[in-house]
Structure formats: C-alpha cells, structure tokens
Design a binder for these strands. Structure first.
Lengths: 332, 332
DNA sequence: TTGTATGCGTTATCAA
DNA sequence: TTGATAACGCATACAA
C-alpha cells in the first residue's frame, strides 16, 4: 500500500506538504501542489481514512437503525437518508433492528463500537418510559415513531393529525361504520396509539360511535396482518363500509383480504392507508393515503444529527412532518 | 474517552494484556481476565475500531452498491446481505448508484477511500465490454445482473432460464400472443437481454412467432413503465392474451395498466413477473412469478467476498441462483 | 512556504 | 503468563 510518506518521498517533499495538498489547505505553492498531485495520480495513492479518524475521532459515518430495510416505508426512508447524508459528506451504515426492543437497544449500544458520528433511530417498539436509553456520547435522532420527550431530537410523523384527516375523509365520502386495522400496542407511546387517537377523535368529532368490533389489532403490521384483519372482520359478521389502515402496507393486505371475500373497493368498502409508499398509486384500486413528506423527514433527521455534532449542548427539538391526504380510487 | 491504556493502568496490567482479553485470546490467567473485564465494565471502555483498522488494515465493512434501496427487489437484497454479513462479523455500508454507469464506476472507485474490505456490486448498467473495471485491490463480487466474464466472482440470476420457464407457463395456460414488457438495452450483456432470450426461446420451442409489436421496451423498468407499456399496446391496437414482465415491479405496473383499460386479469390477459417480491403474493390478482432464491444469492455473495479476502488468488467463480415458478391468480 | 517531532489507540513481536 | 516497544498512516503544533 502506498502511503502519504511514499508520496512525499517520490515528490521530494515532506509528508506535511502532501497532507496540505490532499486536504486542500492553503499555503502550498502552485508548482509543489502540481507535483504532488501528479505523484498521487501516478502512484495510485489513497488517503487512509482510518488514520485520519484515529486522529480526528470522527468517522464520517452516520448509523441508520430501522426495523428492516425491505419494508417499503423503511426502504424509502433509507434511500432518502443516504442521499441527504451524502450531500453533507457522510456515509450511512444501516442496522436492522428487527422491530424488537433488543435490536433497538443494541443499535444504540453498538453505535459506540461502530464509531458512528451519529445515529438516526427509527424505533418502533422501544418504550421511553420503560427503558433508559439516554446515551449522550453521540447525537441520536429519533425518527418517525416514538416520542422520547426531550431526551432526543425527534422528527415525528403527523400520526394523530394524519389519521384523523384520513378518517374524516372517509366520513366525508359517506362511510359510517369505519374499521381501524392496526398493531396491538395501543397503550404505549407509539405510532399505533397515536394513530388510533386520530381515528377515535375524528369519529367523536362527527358524532359517530367507535364500535370495538371494528378495531382489529395484530402483533405485527404486515401485508399478511392486513389481509387477516379482513378475514376476521368478515368472519365475525361485522358490518363496515370503510377501513383506516395503520400503514399502506397493511392497507395493501386489506385490499387483498377484501378481494378474498369478494368485497368491492371502493363500492362496498372504502379504504385509506398511511405513508404513501410508491406502490400505493399503482394498486388496483389505487390507494388513498396520508402522505407525510418523507424527503423532508430524512433531510431534517440528517440535519439534526449533523448540527448536534457541532453543538452537543443545543436543546433538543421536536419537528412534525407536514402531510397531505392523497385521494385516489380506493375512496372514490 | 477511556482508552485501552487507561484500562491497563486501572487494572494494574499492561495494554497488551487488556488487548488479549478484549480479543478473547488465550494466554491470560483467569483472575487477570476477570479483573480486566471488571475494569472495562466500570470504566465504560469501548474498543476503538479505527485504531484496530489502522493496524490491521481491515475495517470489517463490506460495501453493497445497488441502484436504489427503495426498489423492493434491492431492498430485499440489502436486507439479506446485511443479515448474512452480520453473521460473519461484517457490517454493510450501502451505496446507491442510481442505476447510472457513473454511479457504478464511482462505487468501485470509492471502495478504496471508504476502506471497504470488499464490495458487492449489483450493477445494472455497467458494461464489461466497454469499461475497464478490473480493480483488484479489494474483492468485488458482481451480483445478479451483469456478466463480467471471469474478471469477478459472479452470483447470477437465472435470467434466461427463468423467463423461459415463465413464458412456457403462459403457453401451457393457453396463451398464444404473449407480450414482453422490459427495458430497452436489448443488446448489452445484461438482465434485459438475457431475459428476452428466455422469452424468445420459449416461443420458438413451442412454434410461436415472436411478434415485434408485442415487445414493449422503455428506458426504465418501473411501476410507471409497466403501466405505460399496456397503454402503448392497447393504443397500438395490439392483440395479446399474455404478458411476461421483466420484473415484478413492472408487472405490478402492468396490472395497473390493464385495469386502466378494463382488461381483466387473468380472464383476458394472463401475467407473469420476475423476482417474487413480498408484495406479489398480495396483489389483486396475486402475481405468478419467477422466484429466484434471494437468500441463497445474498449468502453466496457474502461468502464469496469473505472467502476471497482470505484467498485473493482463488480463480473466480460463477453461480446461478436456483428458482421456482410460483403460480398464482394472474395466470389461473 | 516547508519541514520535524509527536501522538492518536491498537496490536505484533519479542523478551522477561 | 505478562510486559515493553515499535509500528500502522495521518494531522497538529511548532520550528525553520
């Protein structure tokens, strides 16, 4: 391997001069700079980032911990975060937490070992009331789901507002018996609880009764759980003319479940999701959904991490992403 | 920051002994080991990976370059690669190439700077005949798409075999006018060309004519391009009773396009995709598809990278993933 | 404008 | 079984 010293020797200068050239610092005469760059090109020299890191204590790597990158929503998030991080000169190492508490705790713990400069954690199960996760050694930004109070910077989804708007949208379309298909952690501080509050609030506002038979929960929020939810509703003889799904992925499963029972959407049952994943527009019927501004969220998360690196003492901030209701065929 | 030296001092031993304990090496007496571990726990010491890297020249990071992580297929791939790499003690840094040649070349070039121990490159546009990409400084495994001959280890998709089987499946179901919806780089050494060969081979084998009007190409392979392809077929007055889509994502777009024109699938047009992304099972109608073994591919790619680290001289190998045809509603 | 000395935290080598 | 020393490649401080 060719080192900075080799380049210095070949160019007939000192290591320091090479370092200055490599780092684009001033104070190097033009002829010397050219000579050094020549030698670098010829020799195939590459700066050793580990050595620089050892000196500076910074790796230039931001961790992104998500449940699984192959869930559409988190894949989308990862793509945006990688983009915005690159724009600021950072690389992204992805950790998969598996949506289990141990995985999310581990992601924080590992951030030391991995020498991350910062961590963006999309926690979905970690409960701030039950787990002491205050780390403090590197900037951690909580993304999207759980609210850890003022302990961390937090970029939140418009969970409650979004679901309320979605539910209102169904009501405006004439639905009166609206089911809510979601996860089962209704008590915690989490996306499931917040979105359900929005659903309940909209019903209450419009004077509709929240029928417990129309609340279908399951431990996971997947395509399969959405499908199964419909099977359960129909199996229990529940009457419903609208469904609010906790995510687009679940909604897609619901669509499948409706098809299994020959229920036409939107004619017999209208459906609305949450996230606006890329596929939603192409489903048959295309899916009405709550569309938070994902690019905005990713950019903000990266920005908060980077800014906190510069100023660790800054008070934590909480941002809620803007959103739109995208009306499509599933609620026509 | 607490260093190995600090731990050594606190434990009353040498740095080397601490290192031996941290690395689980033999030759440390039990009492000393316990004492050191105690101090480590108390002091909150964490091994500095950069320093280790500086010594060893290894980072423990494998790069994974994919077009975009938010495409379902590549998200799936990334998830599997991360899993298998973790199993072998490696972390994964994801690069997004944007499916452009410059991005793919850049990924290789950057692998130096990022101090990657290896690179898994899912190239989709880089053409081995036109670009000199032989690097040699770190192990590079080509994944899935393009064939670089013996220059790199290669884990291939069963492109030709898969599409042939898919096309045969349609013929067996009674289709006689089968369209192929794909990308437009039909000449290169790539997934588009191979899959088309499989399509053509199946038609030829069964004595069906390949009507050029039924070959619909577009520069990209997306949900939108699938949808548009159907619009173009119908707009041109083409008659077709089956569609082979180059990927499941494109197939999903095709499904949408069929719906736009009131064409019933599978009654009027049968459809088959390629990849078996998680969503395919839940589409309405559920999608018949060629299902390569993605876990197998990811595992093999990681294995090849890691093995080549150990033995850079080993001749390159080529593996083709096994696959199944999953018959679902879209070809019922 | 350029060079020298020193140290970042770890590990390999060799000696004790 | 343990310890001392010398690197790894770079950047900081300071001297020339």
């Amino acid at each position: 391997m060719v080192t900075m010293g080799d380049v210095a020797r070949l160019a007939g200068v000192s290591k320091m001069t090479v370092s200055n050239v490599v780092n684009n610092r001033t104070g190097v005469s033009e002829p010397v700079r050219r000579r050094v760059l020549e030698v670098i090109a010829e020799s195939g020299y590459h700066l050793n980032l580990s050595a620089r890191t050892l000196k500076s204590g910074r790796t230039g790597v931001i961790g992104l911990a998500v449940p699984e990158v192959d869930r559409p929503y988190f894949g989308m998030l990862a793509a945006r975060v990688i983009e915005h991080a690159a724009r600021r000169g950072f690389h992204v190492a992805i950790e998969q937490t598996g949506a289990v508490i141990a995985g999310e705790v581990e992601a924080i713990a590992q951030s030391h070992n991995l020498q991350l400069d910062g961590l963006i954690l999309s926690a979905v199960v970690l409960d701030p009331r039950q787990h002491q996760v205050t780390d403090g050694s590197i900037p951690i930004v909580m993304l999207g789901e759980r609210d850890f109070g003022a302990a961390f910077d937090h970029v939140a989804m418009p969970n409650e507002e979004g679901t309320r708007a979605a539910t209102e949208h169904l009501i405006n379309r004439g639905c009166r018996r609206i089911a809510f298909v979601t996860g089962d952690d209704l008590e915690g501080v989490n996306v499931v609880a917040s979105r359900r509050r929005g659903y309940a609030a909209a019903l209450a506002e419009r004077g509709l009764k929240a029928d417990p038979a129309l609340l279908v929960t399951s431990p996971v929020m997947t395509l399969e759980s959405g499908r199964t939810a419909v099977h359960r509703l129909v199996g229990a003889g529940a009457e419903f003319d609208g469904v609010v799904a906790v995510t687009d992925t679940v909604a897609q499963g619901v669509l499948r479940g409706l098809a299994d029972h020959g229920l036409a959407c939107p004619r017999q049952v209208r459906l609305v999701g949450f996230d606006d994943i890329p596929e939603s527009k192409y489903l048959v019927p295309s899916l009405t959904t709550v569309a938070p501004d994902h690019g905005w969220m990713a950019e903000m998360a990266v920005r908060l991490v980077v800014e906190r690196m510069a100023d660790p003492a800054r008070p934590t901030a909480e941002y809620v992403a803007p959103f739109d209701i995208i009306a499509r065929e599933s609620t026509r």
